[in-house]
């Protein structure tokens, strides 16, 4: 993992942890948002706007696909893609 990648991963975990009301250390890459972290539909929206604020991108209409927000890994991929573009 490169330093940038590691930093990004940490920031994604941190953002998810705040929304899920957990410690950052409790958020693992293979965790699912709903079943493992107990994130509900209202918190998913909070998470999306927190990601926009933290990483400075804006969501596009076609960005929202259920599979993008299934797991921590999926969110990380999503953020990487948005940041790169």
């Amino acid at each position: 993992m490169s330093i940038e990648h590691e930093e990004l991963f940490f920031k994604v975990r941190e953002t998810i942890a705040v929304v899920a009301k957990r410690l950052t250390s409790e958020v693992e890459l293979d965790h699912t948002l709903v079943d493992d972290l107990g994130i509900d539909s209202i918190q998913i929206l909070e998470l999306l706007s927190a990601l926009e604020d933290t990483f400075g991108f804006e969501l596009d209409v076609d960005d929202i696909r259920p599979e993008s927000f299934r797991s921590v890994q999926a969110v990380l991929h999503f953020v990487e893609r948005k940041v790169a573009s």
Partner: peptide, 9 residues
């Protein structure tokens, strides 16, 4: 829908 963009889609 979770996000209103899904509704637009």
């Amino acid at each position: 829908f979770v996000h209103p963009f899904e509704m637009i889609q």
